[in-house]
């Protein structure tokens, strides 16, 4: 067994520097690496580029890094729900690269799986395809999209073991598995870190080979963005 455990978030983020590109899992505030984000805020690294489907809300998730003006560039598919983001984007302080959601996921997965690029029909004929190679396959036009290159991936899982194997819960899975092994170093934080052998190998979502560092996360807030309920009959 190859051990991937580190003692804490400080150890997990060793080597993080100004100007780096990070992938961060999560959809809205669901399944975001809360501990890694808090540590990035504490470290104060600046000029960073973030690949993440969304940009958090004003006072949580990636919004915390935006507040401190640590982010130079955001690569996302949807960035609503964040006033500070809007202000920085309109003032030109923040560079934004909007990418179709499925393309964003696949650009991560391509990096994980060793594909330099791939063709997708998404965005053909729109401004997303401007300046990109296009090609006809079976009578349908496609756009060439390149795999991302990132320094660190920060992902959040439900359970993990010492070998770095991960299991996700519900829709908190989202982009997290696609980002594992898609950057030079993948850092996984988990709600429950278990000894090797505790997880059934049949039920592993992401094998530990895609993870370099794993640590027991703390104090998850798991904020709900849109609490919707129905009345009891």
């Amino acid at each position: 067994m190859i051990r991937k455990t580190v003692n804490n978030v400080q150890e997990a983020l060793k080597g993080v520097e100004d100007g780096m590109t990070f992938m961060l899992g999560g959809f809205g505030l669901c399944g975001i690496p809360e501990n890694a984000i808090a540590e990035l805020v504490r470290l104060g690294v600046s000029g960073i580029s973030c690949i993440s489907n969304n940009a958090g809300v004003d006072d949580f998730g990636l919004g915390l890094l935006l507040q401190k003006r640590q982010i130079k560039k955001m690569i996302s598919s949807y960035v609503g729900e964040n006033d500070e983001f809007e202000r920085q984007m309109l003032s030109g302080e923040l560079e934004v690269e909007l990418t179709p959601q499925g393309t964003l996921a696949e650009k991560c997965r391509a990096a994980q799986a060793g594909f330099p690029a791939f063709y997708t029909p998404a965005g053909f004929g729109t401004e997303v395809a401007e300046g990109k190679e296009t090609r006809d396959f079976n009578g349908k036009m496609h756009v060439l999209e390149k795999a991302y290159e990132a320094d660190f991936s920060f992902v959040k899982a439900w359970k993990g073991d010492e070998a770095g194997n991960l299991i996700f819960k519900g829709t908190a899975r989202n982009f997290n598995p696609c980002m594992c092994g898609a950057a030079k170093i993948t850092v996984a934080e988990v709600e429950e870190l278990l000894p090797a052998g505790s997880l059934d190998p049949n039920e592993i979502h992401i094998p530990g080979i895609f993870v370099q560092r794993i640590f027991q996360g703390k104090e998850y807030e798991k904020r709900i963005e849109q609490r919707t309920v129905r009345p009891r009959k």
């Binding site: 809205g28 399944g31 519900g170 798991k222 849109q226 609490r227 009891r232």
Partner: peptide
């Protein structure tokens, strides 16, 4: 965002932050 077989909104008190739709609703 990663679910097939979506049902109705949860009863109050049964919301799970880890189970949402693409509109970020529980």
């Amino acid at each position: 965002n990663g679910v097939l077989g979506m049902g109705p909104f949860p009863y109050e008190g049964e919301e799970d932050a880890d189970v949402i739709n693409a509109g970020k609703q529980t």
